[in-house]
Design a protein around this nucleic acid. Structure first.
Lengths: 348, 348
DNA sequence: ATTCTCGATGTTGACGTTAACAACTGCTGG
DNA sequence: CCAGCAGTTGTTAACGTCAACATCGAGAAT
């Protein structure tokens, strides 16, 4: 009998039944309960039923911490992500969760405030203190992973390809997507294509920018100074004012759909018609791209495939295969032609 | 000396160092390592430093499974979500992750294919087999939780308010948001407001529908038959064709922004002007709402606040406070007036 | 000088599970 | 009639951590 001070309540007891409780009720050993829980063959049907019944009455579910401790595995994948609310990020995570589920794994999420080395390292440490068997890093805008302090034996995959040669990566084929976007505009008769660029320190933004310039160069076209954006629709709007003021611009390739939407608004406000006066191509194919006015021609990224591939790569590593440090899986992109592009027309 | 058969390789050993390894290297007991790891006061500075050094050289991080087993707590929150890629969902999850982080908790994610009772139960079971201290269910379209088989002692919160009286809930104040949207249109001079409804089996869709009807009734206006949608822009587009064909419709309240975007497209295609011919109000305030043409008047939901509140409620329960089964936290909504609404004009 | 106190550190055992092995049963085949 | 076998069930120990208690030593108080 414990003596509690007056007014004190008994500690809240987690009444989770254990294997031993089930064993006692079913009149078997704990080991047999374990066998039933894990679907072992060598249990008499009658015994199995007795155990199953006991589990049900008690509401037993195995303690995963004990199981993890015993097995040395958590059946859990960690994800480090920055700005989960963004289209690409949330769709990738969605796909990861689904793929992980199919592989009977759970997913643990950590959000970083900025995708800097320090933050990602901290997040990775925090995660490895938690229970994970593998780690997925989504779109960290880092220069290199050398500075990234990761547990040596932890399988890791990175989305987007800036870690090529350092960590296994999975990313969209942005180069060919960009090329097709630019060439689509060129083939319509535009003399050149202006770029609405993503932020300077973003790796994918840099990739798209280079691919844009390379494509123009390959066709012997002038390479205009890029308009600078930061992925937000707001920055696209700002750029749109500039575009509206410059009648020489007939075609713009926006590094993502959000900025294209901002561009649209500025152009509409200034009475510049799309695609009659200016043709626009975006990147991503967000769900709403079809429903902008006019429906946006854009480069579709297959985020679902990326998520699936990330998980597949991680599972391979976890199965013990030596990770090819320089493995890069490229997911194809696709140009979706809608109604925001047309042959150039002279503007007044 | 173990003798391996020729050709056999040693098993892949997870070389994660344990407390004991650190203790040996630092020349202290495991308990002292534990004390240092958990920031106990009563360790001599010199000793602490020696332990810290040993931790660093070995790359030690405490085994969370063992810790969880010992402490009976996982510092982890589980989330069950359907269609993570949607705006509201991903923003809510984002906020949850951030709030959980601040409370030094990790977040584990499970996606269900459909928000049905069976699926949610299965997911909850799966999660409780995993390591969680509390559960957040986002927008399950269930009638009641009675059927939901949840571990009895597991703290749970639900987003959206359909579980009122059954489980603690957090949700937007959809009723007043809807009322303000409808009254805004009425105050502009519209005789009545048509509804573009969400799917029949969705609880929030039902809430908005009732609030819409109630508001019209309160103002003695006719209540037209709702246009039926399913949350997708595509369904909004279909409804838009009908709206374009019916000149008597001057104002539409769309149950979400996506459907409003679909509506826009159909109307633009048919040459029906917004807001000149038809006024439109949406719900959610997705990031792109400002950048539709014309910028969409809509009811803003504060998903960030919802996520924060969900975590707060869960933490309270986990701290041992008896959950008020009927607790309902209502997060205010806000009408954002942009340019898709105007006084009615006669259409030809 | 002796006892007391207190702070630092060590020892022990338990959390719930499962692999490895041991033990027991009933049956087959000689 | 018994060795041996296969199939079922039980026993033991260990995974890594930490709370509770035990121990030790040094200085304070008498």
């Amino acid at each position: 009998m414990s003596t509690l001070p007056p007014g004190a309540s008994a500690p809240r007891v987690r009444i989770a039944p254990s294997q031993a409780d089930v064993a006692r009720l079913a009149g078997v050993s704990g080991q047999t309960v374990s066998r039933v829980a894990n679907g072992s063959e060598s249990v008499l049907p009658a015994t199995r039923q007795r155990v199953l019944d006991a589990m049900n009455t008690l509401g037993y579910s195995p303690n995963s911490a004990a199981r993890a401790l015993r097995n040395g595995t958590f059946d859990t994948l960690g994800i480090i992500v920055h700005k989960l609310a963004r289209t690409g990020e949330s769709r990738t995570v969605d796909a990861i969760v689904t793929a992980a589920h199919q592989a009977r794994h759970t997913v643990t999420l950590v959000d970083v405030e900025s995708p800097s080395t320090d933050e990602v390292t901290a997040a990775a440490t925090r995660l490895s203190h938690q229970a994970i068997d593998g780690l997925i890093i989504i779109r960290a805008e880092l220069e290199r992973t050398a500075d990234l302090a990761l547990p040596a034996d932890l399988p890791v995959v990175v989305s987007d390809s800036q870690f090529m040669g350092q960590l296994p990566s999975v990313g969209s084929d942005q180069i060919s997507g960009t090329r097709r976007a630019v060439e689509h505009l060129l083939s319509l008769g535009h003399q050149t294509v202006h770029l609405l660029a993503g932020p300077q320190d973003s790796v994918p933004a840099g990739t798209r920018r280079r691919a844009w310039a390379d494509t123009l160069a390959a066709h012997d076209r002038p390479i205009p100074a890029p308009l600078q954006g930061d992925w937000t629709a707001e920055s696209g709007y700002a750029a749109g004012r500039a575009v509206a003021d410059d009648p020489s611009i007939t075609a713009v390739f926006s590094s993502n759909d959000e900025m294209a939407a901002g561009l649209y608004l500025a152009l509409h406000e200034q009475g510049v018609r799309v695609p009659d006066d200016v043709s626009i191509v975006g990147f991503d194919d967000v769900p709403l791209a079809t429903y902008l006015w006019p429906p946006l021609t854009t480069v579709r990224q297959d985020f679902g495939a990326i998520g699936k591939e990330l998980v597949a790569s991680l599972l391979t590593q976890m199965a013990g295969e030596a990770p090819a440090r320089d493995a890069l899986t490229l997911i194809p992109t696709e140009l979706i032609v809608r109604r925001s592009t047309a042959p150039p027309r002279r503007r007044p």
